[in-house]
Nucleic acid binder design. Structure first.
Lengths: 242, 242
DNA sequence: TGGACCAAACTTGTATACTAGCATCCATGT
DNA sequence: ACATGGATGCTAGTATACAAGTTTGGTCCA
Protein backbone atom coordinates (compact mmCIF):
# COMPACT_ATOMS: atom_id res chain seq x y z
CA UNK A 1 0.00 0.00 0.00
CA UNK A 2 1.41 3.37 -0.89
CA UNK A 3 0.31 6.87 -1.58
CA UNK A 4 1.85 9.71 -3.51
CA UNK A 5 2.41 13.07 -1.93
CA UNK A 6 3.83 16.19 -3.40
CA UNK A 7 6.28 18.35 -1.59
CA UNK A 8 6.87 21.93 -2.53
CA UNK A 9 10.28 22.94 -1.37
CA UNK A 10 10.69 26.25 -3.06
CA UNK A 11 12.77 28.82 -1.25
CA UNK A 12 11.15 32.15 -0.68
CA UNK A 13 11.46 34.10 -3.88
CA UNK A 14 12.88 31.19 -5.83
CA UNK A 15 11.14 29.05 -8.34
CA UNK A 16 9.22 26.27 -6.68
CA UNK A 17 10.87 22.89 -6.71
CA UNK A 18 8.53 19.98 -6.50
CA UNK A 19 9.57 16.80 -4.82
CA UNK A 20 7.30 13.82 -5.03
CA UNK A 21 7.51 11.21 -2.32
CA UNK A 22 5.73 7.93 -2.80
CA UNK A 23 5.22 6.57 0.66
CA UNK A 24 5.55 2.88 1.29
CA UNK A 25 3.99 2.06 4.62
CA UNK A 26 6.26 -0.92 5.10
CA UNK A 27 9.43 1.18 5.16
CA UNK A 28 10.22 3.68 7.86
CA UNK A 29 9.15 7.20 7.08
CA UNK A 30 12.51 8.67 8.01
CA UNK A 31 14.35 6.43 5.57
CA UNK A 32 12.08 7.39 2.72
CA UNK A 33 12.44 11.09 3.42
CA UNK A 34 16.19 10.62 3.54
CA UNK A 35 16.24 8.91 0.16
CA UNK A 36 13.97 11.47 -1.46
CA UNK A 37 15.85 14.47 -0.11
CA UNK A 38 19.23 13.01 -0.96
CA UNK A 39 18.22 12.29 -4.51
CA UNK A 40 16.75 15.75 -4.94
CA UNK A 41 19.85 17.44 -3.56
CA UNK A 42 22.36 15.40 -5.53
CA UNK A 43 20.38 15.91 -8.73
CA UNK A 44 20.37 19.66 -8.06
CA UNK A 45 16.59 19.67 -8.10
CA UNK A 46 17.12 21.23 -4.68
CA UNK A 47 19.96 23.63 -5.42
CA UNK A 48 22.48 24.78 -2.81
CA UNK A 49 21.14 27.42 -0.48
CA UNK A 50 17.52 26.32 -0.57
CA UNK A 51 15.89 26.32 2.83
CA UNK A 52 15.05 22.92 4.28
CA UNK A 53 12.64 23.94 6.99
CA UNK A 54 11.71 20.99 9.13
CA UNK A 55 8.30 22.44 9.85
CA UNK A 56 7.44 23.19 6.27
CA UNK A 57 8.54 19.79 5.02
CA UNK A 58 6.77 17.83 7.71
CA UNK A 59 3.59 19.82 7.21
CA UNK A 60 3.66 19.37 3.47
CA UNK A 61 4.17 15.64 3.46
CA UNK A 62 1.89 15.14 6.43
CA UNK A 63 4.21 13.60 9.00
CA UNK A 64 5.68 14.87 12.22
CA UNK A 65 9.00 16.60 12.57
CA UNK A 66 10.65 13.57 14.14
CA UNK A 67 11.29 11.48 11.03
CA UNK A 68 12.15 14.61 9.06
CA UNK A 69 14.77 15.45 11.63
CA UNK A 70 16.13 11.90 11.49
CA UNK A 71 16.60 12.28 7.75
CA UNK A 72 18.25 15.67 8.10
CA UNK A 73 20.69 14.36 10.70
CA UNK A 74 21.90 11.79 8.21
CA UNK A 75 22.10 14.31 5.38
CA UNK A 76 24.22 16.58 7.56
CA UNK A 77 26.52 13.61 8.06
CA UNK A 78 26.64 13.27 4.28
CA UNK A 79 27.62 16.90 3.94
CA UNK A 80 24.55 17.68 1.86
CA UNK A 81 22.70 19.82 4.39
CA UNK A 82 23.93 22.46 6.78
CA UNK A 83 22.06 23.19 10.00
CA UNK A 84 22.30 26.51 11.76
CA UNK A 85 20.55 26.21 15.13
CA UNK A 86 17.73 28.67 15.58
CA UNK A 87 18.31 29.98 12.06
CA UNK A 88 17.52 27.24 9.64
CA UNK A 89 18.70 24.28 7.61
CA UNK A 90 19.85 24.69 4.05
CA UNK A 91 21.10 22.63 1.17
CA UNK A 92 24.86 22.85 1.58
CA UNK A 93 26.82 24.83 -0.97
CA UNK A 94 29.39 22.93 -3.00
CA UNK A 95 32.59 23.40 -1.06
CA UNK A 96 35.56 23.47 -3.39
CA UNK A 97 37.92 22.09 -0.77
CA UNK A 98 35.47 19.26 -0.03
CA UNK A 99 35.20 18.52 -3.73
CA UNK A 100 38.97 18.28 -4.02
CA UNK A 101 39.27 16.05 -0.97
CA UNK A 102 36.44 13.74 -1.86
CA UNK A 103 37.48 13.56 -5.47
CA UNK A 104 40.86 12.41 -4.24
CA UNK A 105 39.18 9.91 -1.97
CA UNK A 106 36.95 8.53 -4.63
CA UNK A 107 39.72 8.23 -7.17
CA UNK A 108 42.09 6.54 -4.76
CA UNK A 109 39.47 4.01 -3.76
CA UNK A 110 38.16 3.26 -7.21
CA UNK A 111 41.66 2.80 -8.58
CA UNK A 112 42.60 0.53 -5.70
CA UNK A 113 39.44 -1.50 -6.20
CA UNK A 114 40.07 -1.67 -9.92
CA UNK A 115 43.49 -3.14 -9.24
CA UNK A 116 41.90 -5.93 -7.25
CA UNK A 117 39.18 -6.43 -9.81
CA UNK A 118 41.76 -6.82 -12.55
CA UNK A 119 43.28 -9.75 -10.65
CA UNK A 120 40.02 -11.66 -10.79
CA UNK A 121 38.71 -10.36 -14.10
CA UNK A 122 36.82 -13.13 -15.85
CA UNK A 123 34.53 -13.12 -18.88
CA UNK A 124 31.60 -13.50 -16.51
CA UNK A 125 32.23 -10.36 -14.48
CA UNK A 126 33.25 -8.54 -17.65
CA UNK A 127 29.89 -9.40 -19.16
CA UNK A 128 28.11 -7.98 -16.13
CA UNK A 129 29.90 -4.63 -16.36
CA UNK A 130 29.48 -4.52 -20.11
CA UNK A 131 25.78 -5.14 -19.86
CA UNK A 132 25.40 -2.21 -17.48
CA UNK A 133 27.36 -0.08 -19.91
CA UNK A 134 25.08 -1.06 -22.75
CA UNK A 135 22.01 -0.19 -20.74
CA UNK A 136 23.62 3.12 -19.87
CA UNK A 137 24.18 3.83 -23.53
CA UNK A 138 20.56 2.97 -24.20
CA UNK A 139 19.40 5.33 -21.44
CA UNK A 140 21.45 8.09 -22.98
CA UNK A 141 19.99 7.40 -26.42
CA UNK A 142 16.51 7.64 -24.92
CA UNK A 143 17.43 10.83 -23.11
CA UNK A 144 16.59 9.33 -19.73
CA UNK A 145 19.12 11.23 -17.64
CA UNK A 146 17.98 9.85 -14.32
CA UNK A 147 18.48 6.28 -15.48
CA UNK A 148 21.76 7.29 -17.08
CA UNK A 149 23.11 8.45 -13.74
CA UNK A 150 21.75 5.44 -11.91
CA UNK A 151 23.49 3.14 -14.36
CA UNK A 152 26.65 5.21 -14.16
CA UNK A 153 26.67 4.46 -10.47
CA UNK A 154 25.96 0.80 -11.15
CA UNK A 155 28.86 0.65 -13.58
CA UNK A 156 31.38 2.01 -11.12
CA UNK A 157 29.94 -0.17 -8.42
CA UNK A 158 30.33 -3.28 -10.55
CA UNK A 159 34.10 -3.14 -10.00
CA UNK A 160 33.52 -3.45 -6.27
CA UNK A 161 31.39 -6.52 -6.83
CA UNK A 162 34.01 -7.98 -9.14
CA UNK A 163 36.73 -7.45 -6.56
CA UNK A 164 34.55 -8.87 -3.77
CA UNK A 165 34.82 -5.50 -2.04
CA UNK A 166 31.17 -4.56 -1.96
CA UNK A 167 31.64 -2.90 1.40
CA UNK A 168 34.08 -0.40 -0.07
CA UNK A 169 31.31 0.89 -2.27
CA UNK A 170 29.46 2.42 0.66
CA UNK A 171 32.51 4.57 1.37
CA UNK A 172 32.95 5.47 -2.28
CA UNK A 173 29.29 6.37 -2.39
CA UNK A 174 29.67 8.88 0.43
CA UNK A 175 32.61 10.56 -1.26
CA UNK A 176 30.73 10.37 -4.54
CA UNK A 177 27.68 12.10 -3.07
CA UNK A 178 29.92 14.99 -2.10
CA UNK A 179 31.20 15.48 -5.63
CA UNK A 180 28.25 14.27 -7.66
CA UNK A 181 26.67 17.69 -7.94
CA UNK A 182 29.74 18.82 -9.83
CA UNK A 183 29.32 15.89 -12.18
CA UNK A 184 25.70 16.87 -12.70
CA UNK A 185 26.66 20.40 -13.59
CA UNK A 186 29.38 19.15 -15.87
CA UNK A 187 26.98 16.78 -17.60
CA UNK A 188 25.06 19.71 -18.95
CA UNK A 189 27.88 20.26 -21.41
CA UNK A 190 26.95 17.52 -23.84
CA UNK A 191 29.86 15.33 -22.83
CA UNK A 192 27.70 12.45 -21.77
CA UNK A 193 28.54 10.32 -24.85
CA UNK A 194 32.19 10.56 -23.82
CA UNK A 195 31.28 8.87 -20.55
CA UNK A 196 30.18 5.80 -22.49
CA UNK A 197 33.36 5.81 -24.52
CA UNK A 198 35.56 6.15 -21.45
CA UNK A 199 33.72 3.40 -19.61
CA UNK A 200 34.30 1.20 -22.62
CA UNK A 201 38.00 2.03 -22.61
CA UNK A 202 38.29 0.86 -19.02
CA UNK A 203 36.62 -2.45 -19.82
CA UNK A 204 38.86 -2.99 -22.82
CA UNK A 205 41.96 -2.50 -20.72
CA UNK A 206 40.63 -4.95 -18.15
CA UNK A 207 39.75 -7.47 -20.82
CA UNK A 208 43.37 -7.63 -21.93
CA UNK A 209 44.54 -7.70 -18.32
CA UNK A 210 46.33 -4.37 -18.51
CA UNK A 211 45.77 -3.13 -14.95
CA UNK A 212 47.95 -0.11 -15.37
CA UNK A 213 46.14 1.11 -18.44
CA UNK A 214 42.75 0.45 -16.82
CA UNK A 215 43.75 2.57 -13.85
CA UNK A 216 45.04 5.28 -16.15
CA UNK A 217 41.78 5.28 -18.11
CA UNK A 218 39.74 5.43 -14.89
CA UNK A 219 41.90 8.26 -13.65
CA UNK A 220 41.34 10.16 -16.86
CA UNK A 221 37.61 9.46 -16.72
CA UNK A 222 37.24 10.76 -13.18
CA UNK A 223 39.60 13.68 -13.72
CA UNK A 224 37.55 15.38 -16.37
CA UNK A 225 34.75 16.57 -14.10
CA UNK A 226 36.99 18.66 -11.84
CA UNK A 227 38.56 20.18 -14.92
CA UNK A 228 35.16 21.16 -16.23
CA UNK A 229 34.26 22.46 -12.81
CA UNK A 230 36.69 25.31 -13.17
CA UNK A 231 34.78 26.52 -16.21
CA UNK A 232 31.50 26.31 -14.28
CA UNK A 233 32.59 28.42 -11.34
CA UNK A 234 31.48 31.59 -13.04
CA UNK A 235 28.15 30.36 -14.35
CA UNK A 236 27.03 28.77 -11.10
CA UNK A 237 28.82 31.08 -8.74
CA UNK A 238 25.98 30.94 -6.24
CA UNK A 239 26.42 27.21 -5.79
CA UNK A 240 30.04 27.25 -4.72
CA UNK A 241 31.98 28.45 -1.71
CA UNK A 242 35.68 28.55 -0.92
CA UNK B 1 29.40 25.40 33.25
CA UNK B 2 29.43 21.63 33.25
CA UNK B 3 28.43 18.74 35.38
CA UNK B 4 29.55 15.17 35.58
CA UNK B 5 27.12 12.32 35.28
CA UNK B 6 27.64 8.65 35.44
CA UNK B 7 26.02 6.26 33.05
CA UNK B 8 25.66 2.59 33.83
CA UNK B 9 25.34 0.73 30.61
CA UNK B 10 25.68 -2.81 31.80
CA UNK B 11 23.81 -5.43 29.85
CA UNK B 12 21.57 -7.69 31.83
CA UNK B 13 23.74 -10.32 33.37
CA UNK B 14 26.98 -8.73 32.23
CA UNK B 15 29.41 -6.78 34.29
CA UNK B 16 28.37 -3.18 34.58
CA UNK B 17 30.19 -0.77 32.28
CA UNK B 18 30.33 2.73 33.54
CA UNK B 19 30.41 5.63 31.16
CA UNK B 20 31.01 9.09 32.49
CA UNK B 21 29.72 12.02 30.52
CA UNK B 22 30.81 15.51 31.45
CA UNK B 23 28.14 17.79 30.12
CA UNK B 24 29.03 21.13 28.64
CA UNK B 25 25.91 23.23 28.38
CA UNK B 26 27.31 25.18 25.45
CA UNK B 27 27.50 22.14 23.19
CA UNK B 28 24.46 20.27 22.00
CA UNK B 29 23.50 17.34 24.16
CA UNK B 30 23.17 14.98 21.21
CA UNK B 31 26.70 15.69 20.03
CA UNK B 32 28.15 14.98 23.44
CA UNK B 33 26.26 11.73 23.78
CA UNK B 34 27.47 10.75 20.33
CA UNK B 35 31.09 11.41 21.24
CA UNK B 36 30.83 9.57 24.55
CA UNK B 37 29.09 6.53 23.10
CA UNK B 38 31.43 6.33 20.12
CA UNK B 39 34.49 6.44 22.31
CA UNK B 40 33.11 3.81 24.65
CA UNK B 41 32.22 1.49 21.80
CA UNK B 42 35.48 1.85 19.90
CA UNK B 43 37.45 1.34 23.08
CA UNK B 44 35.47 -1.83 23.76
CA UNK B 45 34.33 -0.42 27.08
CA UNK B 46 30.93 -1.14 25.58
CA UNK B 47 31.55 -4.54 24.00
CA UNK B 48 29.60 -5.85 21.02
CA UNK B 49 26.16 -7.11 21.89
CA UNK B 50 25.56 -4.79 24.82
CA UNK B 51 22.08 -3.33 24.84
CA UNK B 52 21.85 0.39 24.09
CA UNK B 53 18.36 1.06 25.37
CA UNK B 54 17.32 4.59 24.55
CA UNK B 55 15.13 4.78 27.61
CA UNK B 56 17.73 3.50 30.03
CA UNK B 57 20.42 5.83 28.72
CA UNK B 58 18.28 8.92 28.67
CA UNK B 59 16.99 8.20 32.17
CA UNK B 60 20.46 7.67 33.54
CA UNK B 61 22.02 10.79 32.12
CA UNK B 62 18.92 12.83 32.76
CA UNK B 63 17.95 13.96 29.28
CA UNK B 64 15.09 13.08 26.99
CA UNK B 65 15.14 10.37 24.36
CA UNK B 66 15.40 12.85 21.50
CA UNK B 67 19.11 13.72 21.71
CA UNK B 68 19.91 10.12 22.57
CA UNK B 69 18.15 9.02 19.42
CA UNK B 70 20.02 11.63 17.41
CA UNK B 71 23.30 10.19 18.64
CA UNK B 72 22.21 6.63 17.90
CA UNK B 73 21.17 7.54 14.36
CA UNK B 74 24.70 8.75 13.69
CA UNK B 75 26.28 5.71 15.33
CA UNK B 76 24.16 3.45 13.14
CA UNK B 77 25.54 5.34 10.16
CA UNK B 78 29.01 4.63 11.54
CA UNK B 79 28.23 0.94 11.75
CA UNK B 80 28.83 0.87 15.48
CA UNK B 81 25.25 0.31 16.60
CA UNK B 82 22.53 -1.91 15.19
CA UNK B 83 18.88 -1.03 15.66
CA UNK B 84 16.17 -3.65 15.54
CA UNK B 85 12.79 -1.91 15.57
CA UNK B 86 10.59 -2.89 18.47
CA UNK B 87 13.34 -5.19 19.73
CA UNK B 88 16.28 -3.07 20.77
CA UNK B 89 19.53 -1.39 19.88
CA UNK B 90 22.85 -3.07 20.46
CA UNK B 91 26.52 -2.41 20.03
CA UNK B 92 27.22 -3.93 16.63
CA UNK B 93 29.29 -7.08 16.48
CA UNK B 94 32.58 -6.86 14.60
CA UNK B 95 31.66 -7.98 11.10
CA UNK B 96 34.57 -9.76 9.49
CA UNK B 97 33.55 -8.73 6.00
CA UNK B 98 33.22 -5.12 7.11
CA UNK B 99 36.64 -5.28 8.72
CA UNK B 100 38.13 -6.56 5.49
CA UNK B 101 36.43 -3.92 3.39
CA UNK B 102 37.19 -1.02 5.66
CA UNK B 103 40.72 -2.17 6.23
CA UNK B 104 41.15 -2.10 2.47
CA UNK B 105 39.59 1.34 2.35
CA UNK B 106 41.73 2.75 5.08
CA UNK B 107 44.91 1.33 3.66
CA UNK B 108 44.21 2.54 0.14
CA UNK B 109 43.45 6.03 1.36
CA UNK B 110 46.34 6.33 3.79
CA UNK B 111 48.81 5.08 1.20
CA UNK B 112 47.45 7.47 -1.40
CA UNK B 113 47.67 10.34 1.05
CA UNK B 114 51.17 9.32 2.04
CA UNK B 115 52.20 9.51 -1.61
CA UNK B 116 51.02 13.09 -1.77
CA UNK B 117 52.58 13.92 1.57
CA UNK B 118 55.92 12.61 0.38
CA UNK B 119 55.88 15.14 -2.48
CA UNK B 120 55.69 18.03 -0.05
CA UNK B 121 57.69 16.54 2.80
CA UNK B 122 59.66 19.29 4.50
CA UNK B 123 61.57 19.38 7.77
CA UNK B 124 58.73 21.42 9.24
CA UNK B 125 55.97 18.88 8.62
CA UNK B 126 58.37 16.09 9.51
CA UNK B 127 58.94 17.74 12.86
CA UNK B 128 55.23 17.90 13.50
CA UNK B 129 54.71 14.20 12.87
CA UNK B 130 57.81 13.31 14.84
CA UNK B 131 56.66 15.32 17.80
CA UNK B 132 53.38 13.45 17.85
CA UNK B 133 55.30 10.21 17.71
CA UNK B 134 57.43 11.23 20.66
CA UNK B 135 54.39 12.12 22.70
CA UNK B 136 52.87 8.79 21.75
CA UNK B 137 55.98 7.01 22.99
CA UNK B 138 55.74 8.98 26.22
CA UNK B 139 52.09 8.01 26.64
CA UNK B 140 53.05 4.38 26.20
CA UNK B 141 55.83 4.70 28.76
CA UNK B 142 53.35 6.15 31.22
CA UNK B 143 50.88 3.41 30.44
CA UNK B 144 48.22 5.92 29.37
CA UNK B 145 46.49 3.79 26.77
CA UNK B 146 43.76 6.27 26.01
CA UNK B 147 46.25 8.97 25.18
CA UNK B 148 48.30 6.45 23.25
CA UNK B 149 45.39 5.74 20.95
CA UNK B 150 44.48 9.41 20.61
CA UNK B 151 48.03 10.19 19.56
CA UNK B 152 48.05 7.21 17.23
CA UNK B 153 45.14 8.78 15.46
CA UNK B 154 46.89 12.15 15.45
CA UNK B 155 49.97 10.56 13.92
CA UNK B 156 48.08 9.03 11.02
CA UNK B 157 46.11 12.18 10.61
CA UNK B 158 49.27 14.27 10.38
CA UNK B 159 49.93 12.87 6.91
CA UNK B 160 46.63 14.28 5.74
CA UNK B 161 47.60 17.69 7.08
CA UNK B 162 50.98 17.42 5.42
CA UNK B 163 49.37 16.57 2.09
CA UNK B 164 46.80 19.36 2.45
CA UNK B 165 44.11 16.68 2.33
CA UNK B 166 42.53 17.24 5.73
CA UNK B 167 39.13 16.44 4.31
CA UNK B 168 40.22 12.92 3.42
CA UNK B 169 40.78 12.25 7.08
CA UNK B 170 37.08 12.33 7.84
CA UNK B 171 36.60 9.44 5.43
CA UNK B 172 39.58 7.57 6.80
CA UNK B 173 38.20 8.11 10.27
CA UNK B 174 34.92 6.45 9.39
CA UNK B 175 36.68 3.42 7.95
CA UNK B 176 39.03 3.46 10.92
CA UNK B 177 36.17 3.42 13.39
CA UNK B 178 34.91 0.25 11.76
CA UNK B 179 38.22 -1.55 12.26
CA UNK B 180 39.54 0.12 15.37
CA UNK B 181 38.01 -2.40 17.70
CA UNK B 182 40.17 -5.05 16.11
CA UNK B 183 43.21 -2.87 16.73
CA UNK B 184 42.17 -2.52 20.34
CA UNK B 185 41.89 -6.25 20.76
CA UNK B 186 45.21 -6.74 19.04
CA UNK B 187 46.83 -4.16 21.27
CA UNK B 188 46.29 -6.39 24.25
CA UNK B 189 49.13 -8.53 22.94
CA UNK B 190 52.00 -6.36 24.10
CA UNK B 191 52.86 -5.24 20.61
CA UNK B 192 52.30 -1.57 21.33
CA UNK B 193 56.06 -0.75 21.36
CA UNK B 194 56.19 -2.08 17.81
CA UNK B 195 53.70 0.60 16.80
CA UNK B 196 56.19 3.25 17.82
CA UNK B 197 58.97 1.53 15.89
CA UNK B 198 56.84 1.17 12.78
CA UNK B 199 55.70 4.77 12.92
CA UNK B 200 59.35 5.77 13.13
CA UNK B 201 60.17 3.63 10.11
CA UNK B 202 57.59 5.47 8.04
CA UNK B 203 59.00 8.84 9.02
CA UNK B 204 62.52 7.72 8.20
CA UNK B 205 61.50 6.65 4.72
CA UNK B 206 59.74 9.98 4.19
CA UNK B 207 62.75 11.88 5.45
CA UNK B 208 64.92 10.39 2.73
CA UNK B 209 62.17 10.92 0.17
CA UNK B 210 61.63 7.22 -0.48
CA UNK B 211 57.89 7.22 -1.21
CA UNK B 212 57.80 3.59 -2.16
CA UNK B 213 59.43 2.41 1.03
CA UNK B 214 57.23 4.69 3.11
CA UNK B 215 54.15 3.17 1.52
CA UNK B 216 55.53 -0.30 2.06
CA UNK B 217 56.20 0.43 5.73
CA UNK B 218 52.71 1.86 6.19
CA UNK B 219 51.24 -1.17 4.47
CA UNK B 220 53.16 -3.44 6.80
CA UNK B 221 52.13 -1.39 9.81
CA UNK B 222 48.44 -1.52 8.97
CA UNK B 223 48.54 -5.11 7.85
CA UNK B 224 49.61 -6.62 11.11
CA UNK B 225 46.36 -6.02 12.97
CA UNK B 226 44.23 -8.15 10.63
CA UNK B 227 46.83 -10.86 10.87
CA UNK B 228 46.56 -10.85 14.64
CA UNK B 229 42.81 -10.76 14.33
CA UNK B 230 42.80 -14.31 13.06
CA UNK B 231 44.37 -15.46 16.30
CA UNK B 232 41.78 -13.53 18.30
CA UNK B 233 38.75 -15.06 16.64
CA UNK B 234 38.68 -17.90 19.11
CA UNK B 235 39.26 -15.90 22.27
CA UNK B 236 36.69 -13.23 21.50
CA UNK B 237 34.31 -15.37 19.52
CA UNK B 238 31.30 -13.53 20.92
CA UNK B 239 32.47 -10.26 19.43
CA UNK B 240 32.61 -11.40 15.81
CA UNK B 241 30.14 -12.43 13.17
CA UNK B 242 30.51 -13.66 9.62
C1' DT C 1 5.68 -31.58 36.09
C1' DG C 2 4.95 -29.55 31.71
C1' DG C 3 2.67 -26.77 28.44
C1' DA C 4 -0.26 -23.08 26.88
C1' DC C 5 -1.80 -18.66 27.33
C1' DC C 6 -2.15 -14.10 28.89
C1' DA C 7 -0.59 -9.93 30.89
C1' DA C 8 2.80 -6.76 31.91
C1' DA C 9 7.00 -4.60 30.89
C1' DC C 10 9.95 -3.69 27.79
C1' DT C 11 11.54 -2.05 22.85
C1' DT C 12 11.73 1.56 18.93
C1' DG C 13 8.85 4.66 15.72
C1' DT C 14 6.10 8.56 15.47
C1' DA C 15 3.45 12.64 17.06
C1' DT C 16 2.95 16.67 19.73
C1' DA C 17 4.25 20.32 23.03
C1' DC C 18 7.38 23.38 24.86
C1' DT C 19 11.91 26.27 25.08
C1' DA C 20 15.13 29.51 23.63
C1' DG C 21 17.49 32.04 20.22
C1' DC C 22 17.27 34.90 16.09
C1' DA C 23 15.30 38.04 12.32
C1' DT C 24 12.13 41.10 10.65
C1' DC C 25 9.10 44.73 10.69
C1' DC C 26 6.38 48.11 12.62
C1' DA C 27 5.46 51.47 15.96
C1' DT C 28 7.05 54.82 18.95
C1' DG C 29 9.91 58.44 20.58
C1' DT C 30 13.41 61.77 19.71
C1' DA D 1 13.76 61.58 9.05
C1' DC D 2 15.97 58.49 11.73
C1' DA D 3 17.08 55.53 15.40
C1' DT D 4 15.56 52.45 18.82
C1' DG D 5 12.76 49.11 21.09
C1' DG D 6 9.54 45.61 21.18
C1' DA D 7 6.04 42.44 19.37
C1' DT D 8 5.71 38.69 16.33
C1' DG D 9 6.75 34.77 13.92
C1' DC D 10 10.20 32.07 12.36
C1' DT D 11 14.04 28.53 13.43
C1' DA D 12 16.03 24.16 15.58
C1' DG D 13 16.80 21.73 20.22
C1' DT D 14 14.66 19.31 23.67
C1' DA D 15 10.93 17.06 26.38
C1' DT D 16 6.98 14.31 26.67
C1' DA D 17 3.10 11.42 25.11
C1' DC D 18 1.26 7.90 22.39
C1' DA D 19 1.31 3.77 19.18
C1' DA D 20 2.60 -0.71 17.83
C1' DG D 21 5.25 -4.63 18.16
C1' DT D 22 8.35 -8.11 20.93
C1' DT D 23 10.01 -10.38 24.79
C1' DT D 24 9.41 -12.21 29.20
C1' DG D 25 7.68 -14.21 33.02
C1' DG D 26 4.27 -16.05 35.62
C1' DT D 27 0.00 -18.29 36.33
C1' DC D 28 -3.34 -21.47 35.52
C1' DC D 29 -4.79 -25.75 33.94
C1' DA D 30 -4.22 -30.46 32.47
Amino acid sequence: MSEALELDVGAAGDALNKLTIVFDRRRQVGDQIYDALKKSIVSLQLPPGVSISENRICRQIGVSRTPVRAAIIRLVEDGLIEVFPQKGSFVAPIKLSAVRNNHFTRKALEIAVLGRACLVWTPEVAARSRQILMRQAAALAEGDLERFHDLDEAFHRSFCSAAALEGVWSTIQIAKARVDRVHRLASGQGRLPLVITEHGDILEALDVGDAERAAERLDYHLERAPAIMETLLGTYEKYFVE
